[in-house]
């Protein structure tokens, strides 16, 4: 790869280095970061014992290979021209994730501690959780029509309740249970 850089004087002598393929560069870098994180997370695991694998052998093997390949991609991104970074949308992904997380924490309630303060989210049950998640998802769209969405959300909620609770008889709480 280093040879490639020398033989391409298009922007020769242009130092500090311009990142030529940012999509590759940052993508590869992120993979290396993931692998390094995995190495750290698996550092407590035993390795090879004689010729038998320990629990840490394969994770570390895969992590090192990923560092090599991811690093290679990142380096090639430095020297080989590639497409520019795409713009990331923020609102859409954030609201979709928000809808999913709201569903997850409200379907049966959720407890966690936030800097030592215990936080308790009440159980809202299938009906409220589904409808909430639906309406938050709606916000992620490009065009929002409130009346239509409210009706569609209600229909979808009813459909899910009938399908999952009554037809499939899955043990979901239907209504909010406060304390």
């Amino acid at each position: 790869m280093a040879e490639d850089a020398k033989s391409s004087p298009a922007s020769g002598g242009n130092f500090p280095l311009r990142i030529r393929g940012p999509r590759e560069f940052y993508g590869g870098l992120a993979l290396v970061a993931l692998a390094v994180f995995a190495l750290w997370a698996s550092s407590d695991l035993a390795g090879m014992r004689g010729f038998s694998f320990g629990p840490g052998t394969t994770p570390r093997l895969f992590a090192w290979l990923l560092i090599a390949v991811g690093g290679g991609i990142a380096i090639s991104g430095l020297f080989v021209d590639g497409p520019p970074l795409e713009t990331y949308a923020l609102r859409g992904p954030a609201l979709v994730v928000c809808a999913i997380v709201v569903f997850a924490v409200t379907i049966r309630g959720f407890r966690f501690s936030f800097f030592g303060f215990p936080v308790r989210i009440p159980e809202l049950g299938l009906i409220v959780a589904t409808f909430l998640a639906y309406m938050i998802s709606v916000l992620a769209g490009r065009e929002i029509r409130w009346l239509e969405s409210l009706i569609a959300g209600a229909v979808m909620t009813a459909f899910c309740v009938v399908l999952f609770r009554y037809l499939l008889q899955l043990p979901f709480p239907l209504w909010p249970a406060f304390f």
């Binding site: 997850a104 589904t130 998640a133 639906y134 029509r145 239509e148 969405s149 569609a152 979808m156 899910c160």
Partner: peptide, 24 residues
């Protein structure tokens, strides 16, 4: 699609949750 995609999202959520009853 503006009606379809929220439906897919909630359906996926319920689907995943119901496999193990696990919010995580």
């Amino acid at each position: 699609y503006r009606i379809l995609f929220p439906s897919i999202i909630v359906f996926c959520c319920i689907g995943i949750y119901s496999i193990d009853n696990s919010p995580s």
